[in-house]
Each structure stands twice: as C-alpha cells, then as structure tokens.
Simulated assay, not measured.
Amino acid sequence: MKYQWRFEAKEPEPLKRFLTQNGISKRQLARMKFAGGMIFVGHHQRHVQFILHRGDLVTVFTAPEQAAVSVRPSKQPVTVAYEDDEYLVVDKPPYVASLPAANHPDDTMANRVRYYLEHEHAESDAVHIVTRLDRDTSGLMLFAKSSWAHARVDKELHQHTVQKTYLAIVSHNFIGQPQHGNIKAPLAPSPEFYMRRVVDPNGKKAWTEYTVLENFADAAVVEVQLHTGRTHQIRAHFASIGHPLLGDSLYGGPLGYGLKRQALHCWRLAFEQPFSQTDLRLESPLPADLKQVWSELRRNENGIHMDKNNDGTA
C-alpha cells in the first residue's frame, strides 16, 4: 500500500525518526527492507538514515502481504458497515466465529473477509482482525487491511479510545438499584471449566460500565460500554452481580423466548481513523432474534417499563 506525508518541521530530521513518529515500527521498517517495501523522498529511493528537510515529500510503499494459509476464503457474504483504503467494518451475524479453529476451520468471519478482499481486488487478502466477538455474539467487527494499519489502530485500543458499545438483555430487573453503574472486578479462567471466566482478585483488570435502558418484570435491557477487553467480560461481569444474560447457559442465564444464544450485540463502534484523523461512529441494527425478545418483553402484561433516568421507585 502507498502512503505519503509532507515533512513540515523547521529543523532537519532523520527519515527513520519521522516514520516512527507516523506509526511505523522498527519491525515494520525491517519488513520493508527485507520483504519488498520501498521508501522515497521526492523521486529518489532513500535509506532510513536520510535527513529530511522542510517541504520534502515522503512516500512509503509497504511490503506485500499474503493471507495465512490457515484462513481459506469462504464465499459466504459479509455485510459491510464501513470501508476505506485501510479499514473494513463488518456486521457479524450470530453463530459465526471470528477466527478459524479446529471445530470451525472454514466459515468464520476471517474466512469471509478474506474472500471479500480477494473479490474486491484489494491490494492484499491478508486478514487483520482488530476487534473480535464471541461466536454467538452479533454486531460490529473492525478489520485492518495491512499490518501497518493494524498497528496504528491498535495503539488506540491500548489507549482505550476505540469505543465499543453493546446492547444486552439480562435476567432480573434493576428496580430499586442504580440505573447506571460500573463493574470493576478482575477476571480469570474458572478452575472448574477453562472456557468460563470468573471474578478473581488475582485475575486481569476488567471494567464494564452499563446504563439500564428498560426494566421488565424479570429482565432488563442495558447499554454496555467496555473500558477493557477481557474474554467473556460482559457475560462474566453481569453473571457476577446476579444478572446473567438471557440465553447464556455457560453463565447461568435463563433460556426462553426462542433464544439459542446469549442476548448480546455489539451495537456501536467509534474510533478515529489514524490516517485521515476522521472520527468514525458506526451503528448496527439489532438483529431479528434480539428484537423479537425485546418486543415480547414489552408485550408481556406484567412488564414494568422505565426509562434510564428512573430511580427504581414504582
């Protein structure tokens, strides 16, 4: 891929320092050196020790990338929520894993995105997942189209400036409880079952913020903001406070309403496009199964409807 900058600093500066400041790591520079990338200043190819002067035009051609052999293309369609030269955001349906594994090697979102990139004649069909979702969770997923684009947005992830907002339907209502709260509890694998996460003082720091959107007789719809990104964080945190998600049998959530999965959807995704500095705010509509559950809860004559500002008093 091709990237360009104009060097505007008053004082001369080594090319390597300038590239590092613009997000190119030492590893990526080495990859360009040994795998076919090129760096030009003006019309001349230059070494990273070249000294830049004000007004110089720097052009970088990143090394070509190949998709991993283990990620075979799948012709199943993808729903594109946003796309530019560096990033792709897709709307993941439930029951599709993010990455290939032994029990689902061929039709994951990675497989589908690889085929999409090939079909759309992208410069590379290499798949770089930036944000992933559990197999049965639906909603927005962010992909990068190159390792460099991945590294740039990964910095935002570590700085917690990539905002992922979920909608969840949890068991039991929050009547008489705060309608907004924070769950700050470290998580670790359960000693009883490795796939399950439990609150553990020796676990990894985890922080989930929530706002109740609507209360019902024995359920609630909540908006959830992640401040960390641990495995099963939302599911484990709500189970830990006595509100497991509907349909989430792994964490003790009640079944019913025709649900065959946990009632969790990645609703909104917001981040700054690192190359254009554009603020992107994307939204995914609630899928049919969760929309139906919400509608059934509202139709229930025993439902108790409250807006998010209600303090829980009847």
Results as ranks from 00 to 15, higher is better:
R268F: 10
A188T: 11
A30R: 07
E123C: 05
W207A: 00
F34I: 03
A122N: 09
H237I: 08
V90W: 09
P274C: 00
Q262V: 10
T59L: 03
Q163N: 10
S249H: 00
P254H: 11
A144I: 03
E118G: 00
G36I: 00
P254L: 05
N103K: 02
A9Y: 11
V198Y: 13
R114D: 11
L259M: 10
K10F: 08
P287W: 13
L19A: 06
V89Q: 09
S284G: 14
F238D: 00
P287A: 15
H150E: 02
L15V: 09
Y210I: 00
V113D: 07
Q76L: 10
V222A: 05
H265F: 06
L226H: 02
D218Y: 13
S190C: 04
H128D: 09
H227I: 03
S25E: 07
E86S: 15
V69F: 12
S98T: 13
K260N: 08
D85Y: 13
V58T: 05
S98C: 15
F193S: 12
K10L: 14
A188P: 04
T79A: 15
P178E: 01
A219F: 11
D106T: 11
T228D: 06
L133W: 02
T62S: 03
A314L: 12
V60Q: 03
S138I: 02
I169G: 12
G181P: 02
V58A: 01
D154R: 11
Y87C: 03
V48G: 03
